[in-house]
Amino acid sequence: MIWQLEFIILLLVVVCGVAALTVRDLLGAAILFGAYSFMMCLLWAIMGAVDVAFTEASVGAGVSTVFFVAAVFRTSRRSRD
């Protein structure tokens, strides 16, 4: 694997994680968390843990994003802190 590519993915993981924490729009945070999960899934796949990558893609990037969006839709879109 090309190390530059891995580095970019790792950087994106950190950026997405920090951005999901700091952004005030909760819907945006849910989408950023989905992106974070997808980047993590790529990292798992690079490290050879294909089963974990599969779980991360289906649970982290797929279903849990839907759950977050459903929760945001039914509560409030703005975070107070």
């Binding site: 294909v50 089963d51 599969f54 779980t55 649970v59 797929g62 279903v63 839907v66």
Partner: peptide, 20 residues
């Protein structure tokens, strides 16, 4: 790769997609 957990989540996601 895969198994009961991943397959179950994908099947659940299909039902959720229908609901959405």
């Amino acid at each position: 790769p895969g198994g009961g957990f991943q397959g179950g989540v994908i099947f659940g996601a299909a039902v959720i997609l229908y609901a959405i």
